[in-house]
């Protein structure tokens, strides 16, 4: 199991951080921009082709799989965008866009001279596609007719699916039962196939209501209800 899949409810962490800035260091803006461009240029999207050399798939699922695969101590050690920088640099090296040596050498140059200008140029179609992706998005809703197994008001039990790498199932819900609050209209795919974990192909999604006192008996606050959006693969009929 991966700690990152079971963050909800983890105890002993101390006070929260009430920092309201999005970026706490200026450099963080750059890795956010690179990541967003990668998502926009990823070839599976139905957007106009561009001269960009980016030819491999990159989605939220790829970023998350990397973060979920980290040593859990590192997950807590590094800030949010530090993890992005590590994961995205590694992706470009693993997929042959750049080499580790190039990145190290160039990093040393910018460490010695942080003001050294960036190279200039590039095809404007690349930036047009990035803007278009942001404006149009990438809905996971799929036009397939699938009848949901459950209706609003039904009790469902969360399956203990065999997750290997990536999941969209909050771990603290496994084996717990809740009540279907909403059956979202239509069917929803996911950015990648999570294998035995079970999401990827279009399927219904349910908003399921859980009582916190059932999730953490004797160890939560009164009058707390928790709602989670769960892909159909994650829920089943309760055992009678």
């Amino acid at each position: 199991m991966k700690l990152q899949h079971y963050l909800g409810g983890l105890e002993g962490l101390g006070p929260i951080t009430v920092e309201t800035r999005v970026f706490v260091e200026e450099w963080e803006t750059r890795i956010f921009g690179i990541h967003t461009a990668m998502m926009a240029l990823s070839p599976q999207l139905p957007l106009p082709p561009t001269p960009s050399a980016f030819h491999t798939v990159w989605t939220w699922a790829h970023l998350r799989t990397g973060a979920e695969g980290l040593n859990p101590f590192d997950y807590f050690k590094y800030r949010y965008y530090e993890k992005w920088l590590g994961g995205i640099s590694g992706y470009f090296i693993e997929n042959g866009y750049i080499t580790e040596e190039e990145l190290e050498a160039r990093t040393a140059e910018y460490l010695a001279d942080p003001e050294k200008p960036l190279p200039q140029g590039g095809a404007p179609e690349i930036d047009q596609r990035v803007e278009r992706y942001l404006a149009e998005g990438d809905s996971p809703k799929r036009d397939v007719a699938i009848q949901p197994d459950f209706r609003e008001g039904d009790t469902v039990t969360v399956r203990n699916v065999p997750t290997l790498e990536h999941t969209r199932l909050p771990g603290f819900l496994r084996n717990h039962s809740g009540v279907v609050e909403t059956v979202y209209p239509g069917a929803y795919g996911y950015l990648t196939d999570t294998g035995t974990d079970g999401v990827g192909a279009p399927m219904p999604v349910y908003c399921v209501r859980f009582e916190a006192k059932n999730l953490w008996p004797g160890n939560t606050e009164p009058n707390v209800t928790l709602y989670a959006d769960l892909y159909a693969a994650y829920v089943t009929k309760p055992v009678a």
């Binding site: 750059r30 050399a53 980016f54 990145l103 160039r106 040393a108 910018y110 190279p119």
Partner: peptide, 22 residues
Amino acid sequence: AARVRALEALLIEKGVITSKTV
């Protein structure tokens, strides 16, 4: 900061993104 600038510079040079993308 140096590493992300190095990455951005390399991606511009390799034609993955432009100098205006970010």
